[in-house]
Structure formats: structure tokens, C-alpha cells
Amino acid sequence: MLKALVIDPGKCTGCKQCEMACSYENELEFNVSKSRIRVFDFHEQGKMVPYTCTQCAEAWCQQACPVNAITTDAASGVKIVHENLCVGCKVCTIACPFGTINYNASTGKVIKCDLCQGSPACAEACPTAAITYQDVEQAGFDKMKMWAAKSGAASESHGANAPVAKH
């Protein structure tokens, strides 16, 4: 069963526990600038939106990598960056139209959400269940499609560059 992060921005208070947990889990330091999940603060509306990689079925980052450093974990569908292969060329960082793979200057490699090998620290740390980790079918495929329809990528509804929801 494919599991995914389910994000409900309506429940987010902007406490940024998710960013702290992510950076500590993955970088062993409390440094939100190295978090793979980011909370965007829409102060005009008093709204917070946690945002991270959606683990695209056929990912732009993976396609663009010139040295095969991003692979798909067969069981979870997660896209994983192999640090030993990443040369730090950053092409994935401009190729991902969601902006969710980023360059880490202290290692010279890119980083992205890998769902913490199946127990995402952000979801565990979230005090309001704005971020939960659920199986995709249970969370509702229709909602996913709704999100896709609203998202930028899905505005290319047909043709070469149109994203297709994974079945």
C-alpha cells in the first residue's frame, strides 16, 4: 500500500516543528534552512501551508539527473537521492517544477524529502495533525486528483508535458 504525507493547511499553526524535526532527522542539526519540508506563511490571510515533495510517479528530478543519482524505491515509490552518485550539478533543482529538491551547499549535493524511510519525522512532530502519514487510497484518490487539478503542473492537461496521476 502506497503511503503519503497528507497535508491539511487548515490545521497548521505555523509552529515549524515539522521543519525542526526534518532538519534534525536528516541533517542532525536544528536548522530550518536545511529542512525538506517548508511552512509558507501567508500573513495577509493569516494562513500557513506546509509544503514538500510529492514523490512524483515519474519524477522530473529523476528524469533530469545526468548520472542516475535519483532512483525510485520499488516498495514505497519514494524518489531517493544517492549522495555517492550526486555530482552536485543542480539540474534537478531547476527541472523540478515544484521546487522541492534543493541544493545543500554544505555537502555540495541535493536534498529532498524521502519520507524518512517510512516514518516521516515531520508527521510525528506535528502537534495538530496538519501533517499525517496515510495510505493513499484511504486518503482518497479523488482528493489527490483535485489537488493535481488545482496545481500548476496539472494545468498542462494534455500533451507532452501533462502530468498524469498515478494509478
Binding site: 493547511p9 514523490q55 519524477a59 522530473w60 489537488w147 488545482k150
Partner: peptide, 11 residues
């Protein structure tokens, strides 16, 4: 709520 799950696909 939206599901932050696999949606996009490169074609």
C-alpha cells in the same frame, strides 16, 4: 486538505 502524494508525471 490535499494529499501530498504522487501526482505529477513527466511525459
Amino acid at each position: 486538505a490535499h494529499v501530498n502524494a504522487p501526482v505529477a508525471k513527466v511525459a
